[in-house]
């Protein structure tokens, strides 16, 4: 196993402070595994974080996200800006294993101490990927990386949640992945701060870009919204921002494999970064992030406490009753909560 000093919170934090990459990698593992050290580590590192600009890159499989991340990070490195990368791939629901292959397309970044790449599997734990990812982002932030790029497969709810933990979300589209309507389905427009139409040398790239343009011209919504735990939550716009100061997502055409259009995309990301600071939107997003995060953690902690108090058996009996339609789920929850309160009051 790892050196002994990396089995303690103090040793790991000291390692991280001195720039030791092994310590950083171990800390991320502790958090992913939700080990006993995870919470003390997060508590110790939290005050150190908050400096990085967090960039989410999302889009359907095959749009070229990994290659784009490779090109973007390479360009940041030319400007001597350090980059942490989190590449998320799905866990197989059947075996619980995962095949994480994004590094294949990030080989240009090998051997550079200013880059740290970590692959994460979705795992499907209680509390969800969004929380684990947010925690790993925080660790890279605390380790001093100036830009953190998080790449997710843009299908499904958890990915939208991850995107909402970024300050700048880039939605990657590519021509030839279905008609233009696919590109503008609800959900994608709302989370995008920037669009990249990748593989722009392919036929149909102009049509894809134009379809996005037309949607945007229909007018930005007064408030952007995102789904969160089945509820619509407003994001990104502080309530008092003047209409003429609102951000309209720019559209960039890129050919990531040839590193074309990457300068413009990077400049767009940095423009958005400045916009967030100058318009006060960043503080607003930080507040919303904190609010979401707190609710998520509180919900999980309460759930765990209730399950622990009531015990496996009582829960599965109730589940049976609901499954057999002897009891509806709402009444079931009410009964469980009553039982829980009874327990803690008599304990």
């Amino acid at each position: 196993m790892a050196p002994a000093q990396y089995n303690t919170v103090a040793g790991l934090v000291a390692g991280l402070e001195s720039g030791n990459r092994r310590a950083l990698a171990r800390i991320i593992s502790h958090i992913e595994n939700n080990s006993e050290l995870a919470q003390p580590l997060l508590a110790a590192l939290y005050p150190r974080a908050g400096q990085a600009h967090i960039i989410g890159i999302t889009g359907a499989p095959g749009t070229g996200k990994s290659t784009l991340v490779n090109a973007l990070a390479g360009l940041y490195r030319q400007q001597d800006i350090s980059v942490g990368i989190i590449a998320v791939d799905p866990t197989s629901p059947f075996s619980g294993g995962a095949l994480l292959g994004d590094r294949v397309r990030m080989r240009d970044l090998a051997g550079d101490a200013g880059v740290f790449i970590r692959s994460m599997a979705t795992r499907g734990s209680l509390g969800g990927l969004a929380q684990a990812t947010a925690d790993v982002i925080m660790v890279l932030d605390a380790a001093g990386f100036q830009r953190i790029i998080i790449e997710t497969v843009g299908v499904g709810q958890s990915e939208v949640e991850i995107a909402s933990t970024a300050y700048t979300t880039v939605v990657v589209e590519a021509p030839g992945l279905g008609d233009e309507v696919q590109a503008i389905k609800a959900g994608v427009l709302e989370i995008a701060d920037i669009f990249a139409v990748n593989k722009a040398d392919r036929e149909g790239a102009d049509r894809t870009a134009m379809a996005l343009q037309m949607m945007l011209h229909l007018g930005a919504p007064d408030r952007q919204q995102t789904m969160h735990h089945g509820r619509m939550l407003p994001v990104s716009l502080p309530p008092d921002i003047a209409p003429d100061r609102q951000w309209t997502p720019p559209i960039f055409k890129t050919i990531a494999t040839q590193k074309q259009g990457i300068e413009a995309l990077l400049a767009g990301i940095e423009d958005h970064n400045r916009y967030l600071a100058e318009s006060g939107t960043r503080q607003w997003r930080q507040y919303l992030r904190a609010a979401t995060e707190l609710r998520m953690i509180l919900r999980d902690a309460l759930l765990e406490r209730v399950l622990q108090q009531l015990g496996e058996e009582a829960i599965s009996e109730t589940v049976q009753a609901v499954a057999q339609r002897r009891l509806d789920p709402y009444s079931a929850v009410r009964q469980l909560l009553e039982a829980y309160h009874h327990r803690i009051n008599t304990a």
Partner: peptide
Amino acid sequence: RDAGFEVIYTGIRQTPAMIAEAALQE
């Protein structure tokens, strides 16, 4: 993967330094 492991696949033509670096980061 099918046995339940998390597999990081780095592809072909890796130098020993690249492999060690990936092993450490991951």
